[in-house]
């Protein structure tokens, strides 16, 4: 094996040597290398190119002027009301959808954890099946259900709860319902996987000491499940802010980031703006995910898992 690395091309050897020194075994590194190379080639490299294009200046007849350096794209994003409006709308959708998703997910994960036998299997099945079904399918089903002439409105009208049909779809309510439906299975499973390692005895002890059932859940179960809740929040938030399918099928006039950026890239061919827009969005997302995680960590701090 010692002969192989001397024959490596110089640039590869430069990367390889420090990695090799840090690993305890060469064989382990060789096994991890394909995935590392894959991630570098298909994730890091494309992202660096995206970053580079965001720093070029616009071009009349091409998608962007290669080889130029300019902050035009960023200036355009920071001065355009339409683009900022789409980001604001995305974050609004993200926060509302995340709040609803995580609250429902905590409850449902708890129900699955407490259920037994056939009910437990049915509840788990109801989470896994939508998880494995394509976004497109999951989302468009809400159109016949929530449109002004749809099933839900028929039901509300016949019960005399409303006097006129409500337009959930197309509209913001429809987008939120669709988005909650998309991320809920992931959130439930993230929380459930933490709950299932928890000892029911602690909750029982709290109840023996006089805590009511809702209180025992809020004060014992929720803090213990915090690692799962954090994962659920981060996933729900990241995917809802970047949502494309639900707004694409269920939104009305106001569009979020994903739809707007697609328009700039494909119809308007303004690549320097589209890429700068994407970079700004990623920075904002990273910052808000950081804030969310730190905030939630405070609530679960005392019960931190080893």
């Amino acid at each position: 094996m010692s002969g192989t690395h001397s024959s490596l091309p110089a640039p590869i050897a430069r990367v390889w040597e420090p990695l090799r020194e840090r690993s305890r075994s060469k064989r382990a590194l060789l096994l991890m290398a394909p995935l590392l190379v894959f991630e570098l080639l298909l994730f890091v490299a494309p992202f660096l190119i995206l970053l580079r294009i965001s720093l070029t200046s616009g071009s009349q007849d091409l998608r962007y002027a290669a080889g130029t350096w300019s902050l035009e794209g960023y200036a355009e994003v920071l001065s355009s009301g339409v683009l900022q409006d789409a980001i604001l709308y995305s974050f609004k959708l993200g926060l509302i959808a995340t709040g609803i998703t995580v609250s429902i997910a905590v409850f449902y994960a708890y129900a699955i954890w407490r259920a037994e036998g056939a009910i437990k299997s049915a509840l788990l099945f109801s989470v896994i099946l939508p998880l494995l079904t394509t976004l497109v399918v999951k989302t468009y089903a809400f159109r016949p259900l929530l449109s002004p002439t749809g099933t839900v409105n028929d039901l509300l009208l016949s019960l005399n709860l409303v006097s006129e049909p409500i337009q959930f779809v197309p509209g913001t309510i429809g987008v939120i319902v669709g988005q909650v439906y998309i991320v809920l299975p992931y959130a439930v499973l993230a929380i459930y996987s933490v709950l299932s390692t928890m000892d029911w005895g602690i909750v029982e002890a709290a109840r023996d000491l006089g805590a009511s059932r809702p209180r025992s859940v809020l004060e014992i179960v929720v803090p213990q499940a915090m690692p799962g809740i954090i994962v659920a929040t981060v996933i729900s938030f990241a995917w809802s802010v970047g949502a494309y399918a639900a707004p694409g099928l269920l939104a009305s006039q106001r569009v979020p980031f994903a739809i707007e950026v697609e328009k700039r890239l494909l119809s308007n061919l303004q690549w320097e703006i589209a890429t700068a827009y994407a970079v700004i969005m990623l920075l904002l997302m990273a910052a808000s995910i950081g804030v969310l995680t730190v905030t939630l960590n405070r609530f679960g701090g005392e019960f931190e898992y080893a």
Binding site: S23, F43, V44, F47, A238
Partner: peptide, 25 residues
């Protein structure tokens, strides 16, 4: 070792980036 610690987040991050941005890049 440290390579492994580097690998886990690197593999995980693409899952959190909006697919639309991955698609563009």
């Amino acid at each position: 070792g440290r390579t492994g610690q580097l690998l886990a987040p690197l593999v995980l991050v693409p899952l959190l980036i909006p697919p639309i941005i991955l698609g563009i890049s």
